[in-house]
Amino acid sequence: MKKKIWAHLLRNSSIILLIVIVIVASLNANDPVENFFTVMMSQAPFMLVYCLGMTLAIIRGGLDLSIGSVAAFSSYIGALLIIEGYIVPGIITAIAIGAAIGLFNGVLISKINVHPFIATCGTNWVVRGLVLFILAGKKIFGFPEGFKLISTGSIVRFSNTMKISNPFVISIVIFLIVLFVLRKTVLGRQIYSVGANPDATRITGVDTAIVTTIVYIMSGMLAAIAGILYAAVLDCAEPTIGYEYGLMSIAATLIGGTPLSGGKGGVANTVVGVLIIVFLNNALAVLGISHLWQQAVFGIIIIFAALINRIKERQLMLLEMY
């Protein structure tokens, strides 16, 4: 009995952590309900979109560090079209650029066998350099109203802060699509299988290179969507978009309970991880802790999440043995 409770606690440790953090943030906020809505409707959705891509890459047994610069680059190129009034072509172009960079990553990793970390880090470096070079510090702003509505509009509106915002709905739809792909399609099962054991998967006749490439293409597309959403809410495309995306999304995915070893976890876990990260950010802000601490805190979170995942795996293995 005692062992069963222990196992339950271990399995749901991230949800318990989330509840604790939400309570801490709410206790210190002026208006807890308003605070809760702000975080849920206008902070979590953006993060969820790019974290889904990272989760896919981690389940596949890799990583995608290029999402930050992909978001910046694609939203900038998209913005060039959108500012002229071509909203839909602009968005499609941005997503296509995300997919193209993802394709490059995928080929580098699956065909040439470069380690995912170094491959995506290299692309991140090059793409960020391109963004800085092309933009040269300029910003693009003053988008058409229709485009801004994507991020600032809402479907149901109770008051200024209490509303169901468009990004929230968009991120939920994207989440459900990715969840469906992972759980109900052949491709989804193949992603898990490649993550768990690439060699065995290849021997069973799956084209692992294509699975890997598709994962990175999806990750690039999701990063581009996050970049577009972010540009719409800022009403500005700037070269600094997405500097922290890589770090934050690794932290969210790991703390949600998707281990780096690959083949385990899922996007539902990542939702919990994203909520933990955004509410933690919120708690830091509410408690009046300097934003300079952010980077150090996320470094510590990644280390602890990786350690906890390791302990969890060991303990659960032991519990299953008896």
Binding site: L63, I250, L292, W293, Q295, A296, G299, I302, I303, L307
Partner: peptide
């Protein structure tokens, strides 16, 4: 310690200490 004793993934561990070190420097 994390890589040698705990056998964590060395890429992500040192990436985390990268942000930890830089974050501390900023603070």
């Amino acid at each position: 310690y994390l890589v040698g004793v705990q056998k964590l993934n060395h890429w992500v561990t040192t990436f985390a200490t990268l942000s930890l070190g830089k974050g501390l420097a900023l603070v």
